[in-house]
Computed example of a mutant assay.
Amino acid sequence: MRDAVIVEALRTPIGKRNGSLASVHAVDLSARVLNALVERTGVDPAAVDDVVWGCVTQLGDQSSNVGRFAVLAAGWPEHVPGVTVNRACGSSQQAVDSAAHAVMAGQYDMVVAGGVETMSRVPLGAARETGQPYGPAVLERYDGVEFNQGVGAELIAERWGLDRTQVDEYAAASHARAAAAIDAGVFDDHVIAVDVDGATFAVDEGLRRGTSVETLGGLKPAFKPDGVIHAGNASQISDGAAALLITTTERARELGLTPIARYHGGAVSGADPVTMLLGPIPATEKVLRRTGLSIDDIGAFEVNEAFAPVPLAWQVETGADPARVNPLGGAIAVGHPLGASGAILMTRLLARMRHHDLRYGLQTMCESGGTANATIVELLR
């Protein structure tokens, strides 16, 4: 079987809600990262077999196959296709998995995978305003329950006995870790500057330096009067885009490119759609079984910080070393642009692996509806 390798991974800085990227259309933002990928690698875009692009809320600005129109907005040849995929928060991680699978199967030789979300322009929950998202049969099966991720996070906190101090300590640590990574230049080699209205935007802007348990203590619970989840220990509403170039070792050699990492394995799993956010636990177990690796073989983990209880519960259930989990911060600190987050996590994971020469890295995302992706990559340089 052929292999699939990542030869480049780039992302925009993550913009906060109504921040630096709010004026940029999702298609145009996608085009910028596509062209940055071409500029960095020197690859002729005409040789790209497909662009597989994640986007979650496919309404309004994001309604018309963003992947295809991003190709056109980038000025790439018209024969290059594009497709938009939606596996909720894991959409661009699924894009990476699907691209790697197609390359390994011999159906594609070179694919761009990634995603975008401009949550400032297409608000979270906008789908509820235009219809019934889940359908009557699903609502009947689950006794009319509201599928609310915040409520799911509260259920996880209760089940694992996580109190307000514990989740706030995790949130404060996310900001501290992200600040340290930014200051150390860990992201410099894969974050592209974006020019917006004459200004250059180059650094994730959701970060709140000096965040502490004390500063978070003043925030009111958002989902239960006596709950532990609030805006400060949940992921931020954000804008951003990211892209990876995936091909085979042989094709990379022909193009004079040196692969960063090899796709080692991927898995997707489902879990209770009411609690919703526990999917990363069985998905991680599944990908480890599939690859024959143990949790201790993995040198770095990226577990999306949708809410603080998600990585905390995941750590307990998997036995992963907490020091290896999200050491560069995460979505609590810098944001969660839904359709882009899977690809953003991969750029962050690769940065950690390269800076510390770690052979294996694993990323996993909780997703609306109870599904989750888990992906393992192996460092090559």
Rank of each mutant, 00 (worst) to 15 (best):
C55Q: 12
Y108L: 05
T130L: 14
E146Y: 04
A172M: 12
A153I: 06
P225K: 13
S20G: 11
A74G: 13
Q58G: 03
N373Y: 02
G330P: 04
L255S: 03
R32L: 13
H79Y: 06
L312I: 02
L379M: 09
V268W: 09
G342A: 06
S174Y: 05
N304Y: 07
S91F: 01
V103Q: 10
S368A: 15
A271G: 14
D297H: 06
E117D: 15
V80W: 07
R17N: 08
V71C: 14
K16N: 13
V103C: 05
V186Y: 04
R324G: 04
Q363V: 03
D239I: 05
G67W: 01
G152N: 10
D321A: 13
P133Q: 07
L219M: 14
V66E: 01
Q94Y: 03
G67Y: 05
D297R: 00
A241N: 05
D189L: 06
G339Y: 11
E205W: 10
E285G: 14
C366F: 03
V43C: 13
A36I: 01
A374L: 08
A283Q: 03
L350E: 09
V213R: 12
T258C: 04
R209Q: 10
V33R: 05
D189P: 12
R348G: 08
G144W: 07
A173E: 12
D109S: 14
Q149I: 11
T211W: 11
G185E: 03
H355A: 15
A202Y: 02
G75Y: 14
V377C: 07
A320R: 03
R352F: 00
T318R: 11
P133F: 03
